[in-house]
Amino acid sequence: MSANESIIEGVRPVAAAHQQPGPRLAALRGWLRAATGLVVPAVLAALWELAASFGWIPAKLLPPPSAVIDTIRALVASGDLWTHMLATLHRVAVGFGLGVVVATILGAVTGYASCVRRLLDPTIQGLRNIPSIAWVPLFILWFGIFETSKVLLIAVGAFFPVYLGLSSGIRDVDRKLVEVGRIYDLSAWALIRRILLPAALPAYVVGLRSGLGLAWMFVVAAEMMGASEGLGYLLVDGQMTSRPDVIIASIVMFAVLGKATDAILVRLGAGVLSWQDSFKPQG
């Protein structure tokens, strides 16, 4: 019996809960499902390791996974990895936060008020199409080579997807729901808070995720333009000292951190979007 049918008969759909396996089994199954995503990287790493051990690829240029893991271990042992990781995470957090705050305010205002949209949106869309790296020389000139220019560059990167997601998300809100707000004579602020923002939340979350992705991209650019610490600095350092294992180690760290922070956003998003009646294929 589907949940829908049980509701029609006036019974709360509790039956579904009994069909679920026990919590421990369910947790195990959850882990196994998540582990499906590890199969491809594991197979690739194994092939790579084999190829290196048979001498098919020059280990000097492309060190095998075991060498990379050793390098990461050494970096952990010396404490360098934490220093670099924290420096990078800090920049991403501040830059992304700044970009999100500005994008949320501007996105909400331009989404709601057509006159502000006509005034600002063309400029913002124009700026959006400038390749972000083009800002680097200007930012260095304006803000120096230290933290300010780096954080601002990341903020610029995070800004556009978040702005676009929220602004278009608000404009795409079902007119029929907005009319309900009008019937109850909501003020502009109440309309934004009670209808427009919740309805635009799915688009906003997607915007946040792509914004975070760009923040990670831009932190590399920012750290490669001159930094004394950070994973991007580690990349450049690996190049200068001819240590491909260090380069690959920092690339792996970027992948891990990027995926981890995205997973956090997805979690938070799923929490606030649990009301969605969406297509989620089973199995």
């Binding site: 029929k176 729901l177 309900v180 009008r182 019937i183 004579d185 209808i195 009646d277």
Partner: peptide
């Protein structure tokens, strides 16, 4: 303009899906 003494039921339920 709309006023509280006059209620309206639309053709569709128009419920807020998040509430």
């Amino acid at each position: 303009g709309p006023r509280p003494e006059i209620g309206l039921v639309f053709q569709e339920p128009r419920l807020m899906p998040w509430l």
